[in-house]
Amino acid sequence: MAEPLTWGRRYLMCPPEHFGVLYEINPWMHREVQVDPDEARAEWDGLVATLRDAGAEIDLLEPVEGLPDLVFTANAGVVNGTQFVPARFRHPERQAEVPHDVAWFRSHGFTVDELPDGVHHEGAGDALPFRDVLLSGYRFRSDASSHVALSRLTGAAVRSIELVDARMYHLDLTFCPLDDERAIVAPTGWDAYGRRVVEALVREPLVLEPDEALSFCANSVVVGRTIVMPACPRRVGRQLEAWGFDVVVVPVAEFLKAGGGCRCLTLALDVKLGPLA
């Protein structure tokens, strides 16, 4: 019998006060596409309510003018118990977010350990725990070289996965741990070696077809047995329900305009990395 995830009951989120598509750093972003701020706020409120209903606790990060992507807290860094390893963003547009993230974690009792200069790593967006290892993506945003540093800082055994589809530029668009045996996986986002690594790790994968993967359905938030999804292709929903999960679809269309779904809008604060107890 699969055991539920040991994490995913407490999240950091940032209200979309200053959210918008102000620059283009992934294939989904187009500056000519307008974000409806009211709609965005309503969607974000809907996500918060749904997560709370599922039993999650939500902490809030103060929004900052001029930092539209601060709303995607998943990229703030990697959480490990009371340790926080802030991201080193590849794009200068997002680098100014880091001091705000660090300030929040410091004021909430976390120890902040930084990655060395010269490597890029975009936080939980490219680092998801599964069983006793940490899967970490690289190529578009994070560097493979950052993984050994991350492992040294956190003690986690890292599995490096090369991302090959620019539309799925973060690992959390291709991988969603469901419990200790299952995960939603989008192998078309990985190279052959990455596929073999995940195959060896996940006993029961829910393998997405390419078009299903591009619906961002892997960018979901799992709270116990509840899966909060930005979209849910019918086949995927049937399989999840057959496994006994409650599927809740929360529309986040405004955020998809910036290339982010439900997972991107949240950062789990109750992750503990390293060997299983």
């Binding site: 492992s151 055994a157 599995r159 490096s160 996965i161």
Partner: peptide, 14 residues
């Protein structure tokens, strides 16, 4: 090359 390069198949890939 350094890290979990065996289990991640990074060494094989390199």
């Amino acid at each position: 090359v350094e890290g979990h390069i065996i289990d991640s198949l990074i060494l094989a890939k390199v």
